[in-house]
């Protein structure tokens, strides 16, 4: 018995319970896929499912990694400055990512039908929130610098 388990382990690459667990997840997903296959919009759902992975792993990640590289170049080794740029940039980007449907006014008619209001205010609010995040970060950066070098602030 132990020998058979060891053989399975060698061939499969993991313990038998591993096979049970991943098979269960794959069977469930397969069953859902078969069930949805006859839906007219099944192709679009699959496209969005796989597209979400591609959009994150191969678009969003390279983009934010590249922006971070740009910020590093801008800060030229001043790590505190770099982080005071990174934090508000991340906050602003996060808000855009989550609330882009309103900010970009995608769905004006459904929004109006559901709420009786248009989507106009969101863009300006996002810009103001982003500006507030950068301002807050700039102010704390200046305060930290003053604390770190009291001599310079005395002479200023």
């Amino acid at each position: 018995m132990a020998e058979r388990a060891a053989r399975l382990r060698a061939r499969y690459g993991a313990a038998p319970w591993h096979l049970v667990v991943v098979t269960a997840a794959l069977v469930l997903a397969g069953w859902v896929a078969l069930r949805l296959a006859h839906e007219a919009t099944a192709g679009r759902m699959l496209l969005w499912f796989l597209g979400a992975v591609i959009a994150h792993d191969l678009v969003l990640f390279p983009v934010y990694a590249a922006v971070d590289r740009g910020l590093r170049a801008l800060a030229r080794g001043r790590v505190t400055l770099l982080n005071h740029l990174r934090a508000p940039a991340l906050g602003s980007a996060l808000l855009f990512l989550v609330f882009s449907p309103g900010i970009l006014r995608l769905g004006e008619t459904t929004h109006l039908a559901a709420t009786g209001q248009d989507q106009r205010p969101y863009l300006m609010r996002w810009l103001l929130l982003s500006a507030a995040l950068f301002l807050l970060s700039a102010v704390t950066y200046l305060l930290r610098r003053r604390q770190a070098s009291p001599k310079r602030s005395d002479s200023a």
């Binding site: 949805l36 839906e39 919009t41 679009r44 759902m45 969005w48 989550v98 609330f99 449907p101 309103g102 995608l106 769905g107 459904t110 929004h111 559901a114 709420t115």
Partner: peptide, 17 residues
């Protein structure tokens, strides 16, 4: 996120998906 912001750009039934 798209559903709560009334943006049905995905073009399939939200509940089903």
């Amino acid at each position: 996120l798209l559903n709560i912001q009334y943006s049905y750009v995905f073009g399939f039934d939200f509940y089903t998906a």
